[in-house]
């Protein structure tokens, strides 16, 4: 069996690559993020290499005794991972170019809508408006005077004419007119405001 203890040089290299990669990924500029992704990917690929133990002879039967062979599996995995990283890097570069083309910069921006909602919340406003409930509802007593569910007329018995429909206003005592004046708008609106 080949030596399994990892080489210190490789471990330090991985640490540096990953640290620099993470730092760069936290940047705003997409170009720096791309460099970060590449470094991070290389660091992890080295980690994969490390997982197979130290390097031995080429893993080909009849060329190297089985005990001295390198582990070929991590190498195959790294190869796949490198190809994938290459493809993703190419796509990210295209994306950065497109972003620069459209906006003149390659900055990775925050969630704009989220910021808008946070702003509204900070001002204690609703994220949306209820347009059709903005009709001012008068207080319940004056509304009860006005609303007629079935008809706007009353059916009453008038002498020999029998049943006749007359407007409501005709039978209401004149002194008892409902006060349909505008109620205090401000007060009723603050009452309905939902607590946030």
């Amino acid at each position: 069996m080949i030596e399994m203890a990892p080489s210190l040089v490789l471990v330090v290299t991985i640490a540096v690559l990953v640290a620099v990669g993470v730092y760069l990924i936290l940047e705003r500029s997409l170009t720096r993020i791309i460099i970060g992704v590449v470094l991070l990917g290389n660091g992890v690929n080295l980690l994969l290499l490390l997982s197979g133990g130290r390097a031995g002879g080429p893993p080909i039967i009849d060329l190297t005794p089985a005990e001295e062979m390198s582990d070929p599996l991590p190498e195959a995995l790294i190869l796949t991972a490198i190809v994938i990283t290459l493809g993703m890097t190419a796509f990210l570069l295209a994306l950065a170019y497109r972003s620069w083309h459209l906006n003149g910069h390659d900055e990775v921006q925050d969630d704009i809508e989220d910021r808008r909602i946070a702003y509204l919340a900070a001002r204690d406003e609703l994220a949306f408006e209820d347009t059709d409930t903005d009709v001012v509802v008068p207080d319940i007593e004056s509304e009860a005077h006005e609303v007629r569910d079935e008809t706007d007329t009353l059916t009453i018995l008038v002498g020999e004419e029998g049943l006749v429909n007359v407007p409501v206003e005709a039978v209401r005592p004149s002194g008892d007119a409902p006060d349909d004046g505008a109620p205090d708008d401000g007060a009723s609106q603050t009452d309905r405001e939902e607590p946030r």
């Binding site: 990924i25 997409l30 993020i33 992704v37 991070l40 990917g41 992890v44 690929n45 980690l47 994969l48 490390l50 997982s51 197979g52 599996l73 991590p74 995995l77 991972a81 994938i84 993703m88 796509f91 990210l92 994306l95 497109r98 972003s99 459209l102 906006n103 990775v108 921006q109 969630d111």
Partner: peptide, 30 residues
């Protein structure tokens, strides 16, 4: 423009998760 903006975030986050997954695989193999 809008899709590039939101897509960038999606891609960077997905790439980070892929790298973490790959590191996990390396450690599982080790």
């Amino acid at each position: 423009s809008a899709r590039i903006r939101s897509g960038t975030i999606y891609i960077v986050v997905a790439l980070v998760s892929s790298v973490i997954f790959l590191a996990a695989i390396a450690l599982v193999y080790a």
